[in-house]
């Protein structure tokens, strides 16, 4: 009889990362680095620059949080995530926060166990077509082939819109914005649909931007904002108020440039609380009192971030619109620092 011995080798592949113990804040501090999930490439919102460093409107939120928590906006590790992988990456703890033009919806807030902490861009879904098609309204898209990013709210809105208007279409499900642009430019789809801001950003990078039109219809509400895991409320507070500090700063006219000057001279109690000169706001969320000041110093106020990345002066050229301060007729409204 031949005797053979089998040593069963057990592959202990953990299904999920280790049991969540320490709070996200402690983890980030211990690591000395914030891990932020961003779009793999959407010009103006999050895209690597010539030196390979991520820049953009969404990236600024990561930098603000890193500055508030770690004191250095450069201490961020960016993890590019597709529409399909982003929420799983956040839920499994692969990233500390998500700042990846993600729409705040009921089911994502509840079922996916995420917390959207604020809205950094009020958006809506639009359509982009080649001018030569002669389409002037989304309601003329009967029978069209439409590229849509998979795993997004736009996919569902698209289905709803065509159903509501009793039209048919052929969806082409693509993984990310780069693929969508490539398919659209190659003519594999008649129209590309995503958030209007995303369309503007994509169009800005296309070689024949003048031959491409964005249709007037906005078919959905897309409040885009940073998200954190549900359950760690303190971490959610930190991200929320680091962002609101930027909005509040714009409202009170505090900019990156005049910050020190204002801090030295201001008597306005709201600004003094924002900049940590009064009260103990920082201590209440486990940070020091200068957290908001550092965030503003790192990236500028909300208006500065907007103008630098996606505003009228950039190639993307988005108007403030809904994203103006509430005092200017927009929806940007930071709750009081009190």
């Amino acid at each position: 009889m031949k005797q053979s011995v089998f040593f069963g080798s057990l592959v202990m592949a953990g299904l999920v990362a280790g049991v969540a113990g320490a709070s996200t804040l402690d983890e980030v501090k211990a690591r000395g680095e914030l891990i932020c999930g961003v779009n793999p490439g959407l010009t103006g919102f999050a895209a690597p620059d010539a030196n390979g460093n991520y820049q953009g409107f969404d990236v600024a939120v990561c930098k603000a949080v890193a500055a508030a928590v770690l004191g250095d906006p450069m201490k961020v590790k960016y993890v590019p995530l597709t529409g399909e992988t982003r929420f799983t990456a956040l839920a499994s703890g692969e990233v500390d926060m998500l700042s990846r033009n993600s729409t705040w919806t009921f089911s994502r807030d509840t079922e996916l166990a995420l917390d959207f902490v604020a809205v950094n861009y009020y958006d809506g879904q639009g359509f982009m077509v080649h001018k030569e098609l002669g389409v002037s309204s989304a309601k003329e898209l009967e029978g069209a082939t439409i590229c849509v990013q998979t795993g997004t709210t736009t996919e569902m809105n698209l289905a709803d819109f065509f159903k509501a208007n009793n039209m048919t279409y052929t969806p082409v499900n693509i993984a990310d914005d780069a693929e969508g642009q490539q398919r659209f430019l190659a003519g594999a789809c008649d129209s590309y649909t995503t958030d209007a801001s995303g369309l503007a950003a994509s169009r800005a990078t296309m070689p024949n931007a003048d031959d491409i039109v964005i249709l007037p219809e906005i078919i959905s509400k897309e409040p885009l904002g940073p998200a954190v895991r549900h359950g760690d409320n303190n971490w959610g507070d930190i991200v929320r108020w680091s962002f609101y500090a930027l909005v509040e700063a714009e409202e009170y006219g505090v900019t990156k440039a005049n910050l020190e000057e204002v801090a030295a001279s201001t008597q306005n109690p709201e600004i003094r609380r924002l900049l940590g000169l009064e009260g103990d706001m920082g201590a209440k969320i486990g940070l020091d009192n200068d957290f908001a000041k550092r965030a503003i110093l790192a990236v500028g106020n909300y208006g500065e971030v907007f103008e630098a990345n996606i505003g009228a002066g950039t190639s993307i050229g988005l108007a403030r619109g809904l994203n103006a301060q509430w005092t200017q007729g927009g929806l940007m409204y930071a709750p009081p620092f009190r």
Binding site: A13, L15, V19, A91, A113, H230, G231
Partner: peptide, 13 residues
């Protein structure tokens, strides 16, 4: 493995 999955699901609610 099963326990790990169970505990983590529980932790995430």
């Amino acid at each position: 493995l099963l326990n790990n999955a169970y505990v983590n699901l529980e932790a995430k609610g």
